[in-house]
């Protein structure tokens, strides 16, 4: 069990719990579709089953959505739930440290 309220992760690192969508710029081509199903920046979603077990099950409002791992790995989220759980090693796989360079890191920290 771990709380990572101040950190940001790719959605595929979350095994279970509620989080807020922070950045969808990694999935530009799918963005409008994601928006129309309720996946927008600042939306709160609940991960019901992490992508370690295949697809990820996400509760968006009343809808259960299966997201492919490749899509989840491009969505940056921040946990808003103290009881959030991560996939093995997911806690270390911070979106800021893990994937982006200094410029992007700056962007996430400052909100630029």
């Amino acid at each position: 069990m771990s709380s990572k309220g101040s950190e940001r992760f790719f959605l595929n690192n979350v095994r279970w719990g509620r989080c807020r969508i922070v950045d969808l710029s990694g999935c530009e081509t799918q963005k409008s579709k994601l928006r129309s199903i309720g996946l927008i920046e600042s939306a709160v979603v609940e991960v019901m089953r992490g992508s370690a077990e295949g697809m990820l099950i996400l509760l968006i409002g009343e809808s259960r959505m299966g997201l492919s791992n490749s899509l989840a790995s491009r969505i940056v989220v921040e946990p808003i739930d103290e009881r959030i759980r991560f996939v093995d090693g997911g806690e270390e796989n911070n979106a800021v440290k893990g994937r982006f360079g200094r410029r992007k890191r700056y962007r996430y920290r400052t909100g630029w």
Partner: peptide
């Protein structure tokens, strides 16, 4: 590449 996708799971 395999395209990313979303699948609704109805109740």
């Amino acid at each position: 590449e395999s395209s990313p996708f979303v699948l609704e799971l109805p109740p």
